Simulated assay, not measured.
Amino acid sequence: MVYTDIPLTDNILDTVAAEWGHRGAGERLHGGEESAAYRIGEVVVRIGSLGRDPAEIEWCNTVAATAARSVPEAIAPLPRADGSTVTVVAGHPITVWPLARGQWVDSEDPIQSAEAARLLARLHRALATYRPPPRPVRSFLEIGLDGTPSAHLPDPDLDRWLAEFTRTTRHQPLHGDYYAGNLLCHNGHVTTVLDWDEALIGPPELELASAALEFTDEVRGDLTRARTFVAAYHAESGTAGELDDLTISQLMRHRLRREAAYFDIAVARGVEHDEDDHEYHRRRLAAFHHFRP
């Protein structure tokens, strides 16, 4: 896995001390494809990618803060004196969050999978009535959701299906990148949901299917575990409607196609992936074809 290399500079440390009142040396935390996270005492400083619109991150942070009001596993960004949650240092957006301890969720563990599904249901319920302004920039998952043809893994049938599905479904705020790497567990139980940078307004069914993909057997195209994840979500009264196998498969394939586009864009930017990254990419491409209805 390629993680970004963004240093915690003295200017950033000085800004965090001045704006949030936290001082100390930084310890790099594991993970981060586009942003880097450093622990300073009992908070985490996240440094976003160069040039990313701070208004976009502020928008995402309001979604996180709204969820955190009623879902204890969701943590809210810490505000500055003026109430905002983002500042910019040398072109990098800076945010500060409470420290959450734990390790990444094991997507193969049935207990953690069920807990992740139930947590997603509670997040969707918490956000169902929230009406933020339009997102300043389209998110990763939004592109192509309206049926606009994609140059990556072209599939006119999928495009037409997405256009009709999106037109006829209810939309609400979503986490946007709900998978094991953005969930923490402690003593075998899911405790925290992180990283709201891809939050969006969309059909909750989209996020449910995307999340189910991360807890299923993608290689064999077997929907058994995906159905189990969806059933646990509905048992917790999530806001997404019932999903048949066609809907699960097509929404998963939309996610997989967007991942393929992201991979190619990263390559074009000069990102050098290791063999594990390439193997993961090949597996996800195969899944796109395996799940074809």
Results as ranks from 00 to 15, higher is better:
C185L: 00
G24D: 11
A81T: 11
D146R: 01
F165K: 01
G41E: 01
F229K: 07
E164G: 06
I12G: 11
E42C: 04
M252T: 04
I6P: 06
A68K: 04
L213D: 08
L29T: 06
V44K: 07
V219C: 07
P93M: 03
V44M: 06
T224N: 06
A163T: 09
E56T: 13
W161E: 08
A36I: 00
R52Y: 01
D82V: 08
T168R: 14
E207Y: 02
L99F: 14
I94R: 06
I143L: 06
H254R: 05
Q172A: 03
L127C: 09
A100R: 09
M252G: 06
T9R: 14
C60Y: 01
T62I: 00
E19I: 08
R225V: 03
T216H: 05
N187V: 00
T87N: 08
R225M: 12
D244R: 00
L153N: 08
E34I: 00
A180M: 02
L50C: 08
A151V: 13
R125D: 00
H175E: 01
A76G: 12
D146N: 10
I143S: 08
T247E: 14
Y262V: 01
A121C: 07
P154E: 11
R46I: 03
G221P: 00
P154Y: 10
E19T: 13
I75R: 12
V271Q: 13
E198K: 14
E19F: 07
L208T: 15
H171R: 13
T148E: 13
L145A: 14
I6M: 13
G21Q: 09
